[in-house]
Amino acid sequence: MKGIYKCKINNYHRIGDDLYLLSLRLSGRVAVKPGQFFMLRVREGSEPLLGRPLSWFRYFPNRRILEFAFQVMGKGTEILSRRREGGDLSIIGPLGNGFETKGLRGRVLLVAGGMGMAGLWSLAEALGRNPNCAVELVWGVKSKSRFFLLKELSKRFKVHPATEDGSLGKAGLATELVKELIDQEGLPEHIFACGPKPMLKSLSKPALSKKIPGQVLYEERMACGVGACLGCAVPASGGGYLHACLDGPALRFDQIDWERVRC
């Protein structure tokens, strides 16, 4: 159930270059789906004014611990990175439609760009429990200091890392690695992707032309997160706009008019 949760900051640590893992203790239980998000009020008061939408990262229901992983990108996340353990933080959620995973089988490719891994982690865990699915991950980052929990992930899944500077794994972009994988091993049954818009846009080309079913976790600037302001417009393939907070953030490649997506 969508709601406002007052949380205590349970634990906080740096997990990479400008990357943080925020662990919150919730006041009650929450039912979350992979791909859903929360609006985090990074601190009380009017500066910054708006909440920050973040995908949930991991959830431990027995301990009522909900985790978020984020990269410092601007003022909001910078303030969030300086919060202290034991402090209060209120969150609104879970919001939006998560990934559709019903009836999924066969080889499933998860493609993460940078911090996009935070949005796919819970999906990887869920699909990992599905005996009909073989999960493979492609994870591209700028440089190896931007990976987090890579070892833990690699123990459980087949992970193909890529770095733009070549400091770990394949040198290049995640999308280039995906193309190679498709050439060598054939088409996957399904693609899930989360990352910067240029990555998603580039990935939409093979996904649509080769008719690989797939979903992206679409990020857009928003004010309310609940469908009230209509701010988070996503160009829709049939014309007009979808809204990331209500229709998404998980959207199929073919729902989006990629030509009109501004990067």
Binding site: P48, L49, L50, K75, G76, E220, R221, M222, A223, C229, L230, G231, C232, A233, V234, P235, G239, G240, Y241, R260, R262
Partner: peptide, 11 residues
């Protein structure tokens, strides 16, 4: 009305 092109919100 379809509305304006995104981004539509800026803090």
């Amino acid at each position: 009305r379809a509305g304006n092109a995104p981004p539509r919100i800026w803090e």
